[in-house]
Structures are given as C-alpha cells and as structure tokens.
Amino acid sequence: MARKTATNEQDALVAEFKALVADTEKLLQDSAELAGAEAEVLRQQMHDSLKRAREALQGAEQALLDQGKAAIDATETYVSEHPWHALGIAAGVGFLLGLLSSRR
C-alpha cells in the first residue's frame, strides 16, 4: 500500500511539473507581446507557478524521507526479532554476490 501511495504522489508530482512547464511556456510566449501592468501580472503568474512546484517538491521530499525512515524502522524491528533469519539472509546474499563477482 505504501508503494501505491508513493506511485500516486510521483504521478501527481509529474502532472504538476507538466502543468508548470506548459504554463511557463505559455507565459513566456505571451510576455513578448506585453508591457507595463500586463507584464507584472504575467510575472506574478510565473511566480505562483514556481511556488506551486516548490511546494510539490517539498511534499514529495518529505514523503520519501518518511518512507525511508519507515523502511529502516521495519528492518531494524525484523532484525531484532529474528536475528538468525537476518544473518542467514545476509549470508545468502553475500554468497550469491560472491558467485556473481567471481564469474566476471
């Protein structure tokens, strides 16, 4: 379920950036024809778009940090509850990596 949430957040972030790029391109095209008060309105719209993008990035960053901390906590809990299983898994992974690296 955490994976679905991360995917949804990534999709929302990508959509936000696509909208930002589209808005910025449109605003830049329109800015060539504008002067005075209209240019100020255009600059404010660009500023608002960039602010939304920054907020979306900060939200995504925080979500990734939270997921990383949750993964670390889950791993630490598992290892403390099942130390022999964790040791066996680590030994197996080490053995497989050793086999793979010796073939090259």
Results as ranks from 00 to 15, higher is better:
1 M>K: 08
1 M>W: 09
2 A>S: 15
3 R>K: 12
4 K>E: 08
4 K>P: 00
5 T>C: 12
5 T>Y: 02
6 A>I: 14
8 N>L: 12
9 E>C: 00
10 Q>N: 11
13 L>Y: 02
15 A>E: 11
16 E>R: 03
17 F>I: 04
20 L>W: 00
21 V>Q: 04
21 V>L: 14
22 A>V: 09
23 D>S: 13
24 T>E: 08
28 L>V: 15
28 L>T: 14
29 Q>A: 13
31 S>E: 05
32 A>S: 03
32 A>T: 04
33 E>W: 01
33 E>F: 12
33 E>A: 14
33 E>V: 14
35 A>N: 08
35 A>F: 00
38 E>T: 09
39 A>R: 06
39 A>P: 00
40 E>N: 02
41 V>E: 11
41 V>G: 00
42 L>G: 02
45 Q>S: 05
45 Q>F: 01
47 H>Q: 10
48 D>I: 06
48 D>F: 10
49 S>P: 09
50 L>W: 06
57 L>S: 00
57 L>D: 05
59 G>H: 06
62 Q>M: 12
63 A>R: 01
66 D>F: 04
67 Q>Y: 15
68 G>S: 11
68 G>M: 10
69 K>Q: 14
70 A>W: 00
72 I>G: 10
73 D>A: 15
74 A>E: 14
74 A>F: 08
74 A>V: 07
75 T>C: 14
76 E>M: 13
78 Y>C: 09
79 V>T: 01
80 S>H: 12
81 E>K: 12
83 P>M: 05
84 W>Y: 13
85 H>K: 12
85 H>C: 14
86 A>I: 00
86 A>G: 06
86 A>V: 03
91 A>S: 11
92 G>L: 06
92 G>I: 04
92 G>N: 04
94 G>T: 13
96 L>W: 14
96 L>H: 14
97 L>R: 05
98 G>C: 03
98 G>E: 09
99 L>A: 02
100 L>C: 07
102 S>C: 04
102 S>F: 12
103 R>D: 10
